[in-house]
């Protein structure tokens, strides 16, 4: 299933484009609404496999991935997106930091050439969320 909220306004090119993948429909809807109201262009998917098959390389300024998803975990999706789009900025958004901590532990043991993924905890106030996202995009 795919949730695409709002039509893309392609005329305004300055808008930062964000891909959001979260299997929870309400979360995908909430976050893409918040992103759009704050001047971002957001594509939201609730199915990680569909998100991957319709992925557009060199298109997004930031990819926000949930970690705990059925069929494909955020980490695997992250790895597959990196194969297509090695330089894109990716951050994880999750309600359970333990997955991320375990992931970081594994990553710190093996030398990994792929980029550093950041981590955003949910829930988070809109203001803080927007500040974090802007920080990551501008980093």
């Amino acid at each position: 299933m795919v949730v695409v909220i709002g039509a893309r306004i392609s005329m305004i090119n300055e808008k930062n484009k964000i891909l959001l993948v979260d299997n929870e429909v309400d979360i995908a809807y909430t976050l893409s609404s918040v992103l759009q109201d704050n001047g971002f262009e957001a594509d939201a998917f609730t199915d990680p496999v569909l998100a991957l098959t319709s992925y557009k390389a060199d298109f997004y300024d930031l990819i926000i991935l949930d970690i705990k998803m059925p069929v494909m975990y955020g980490f695997e999706l992250c790895r597959k997106i990196r194969e297509i789009d090695p330089k894109v900025k990716i951050c994880f958004l999750t309600a359970s930091e333990m997955f991320y901590e375990e992931y970081r532990e594994v990553r710190s043991k093996v030398s990994d050439k792929i980029g550093e993924e950041l981590f955003i905890q949910k829930p988070m106030k809109n203001e803080t969320l927007m500040r974090k996202i802007k920080e990551i995009i501008n980093s």
Partner: peptide, 18 residues
């Protein structure tokens, strides 16, 4: 518990702020 308690707060908090 972390995942299940935090997840429903996201739409309530973020959408009401929005």
């Amino acid at each position: 518990a972390a995942h299940e308690l935090r997840t429903p707060i996201v739409p309530i908090l973020n959408l009401s702020e929005l």
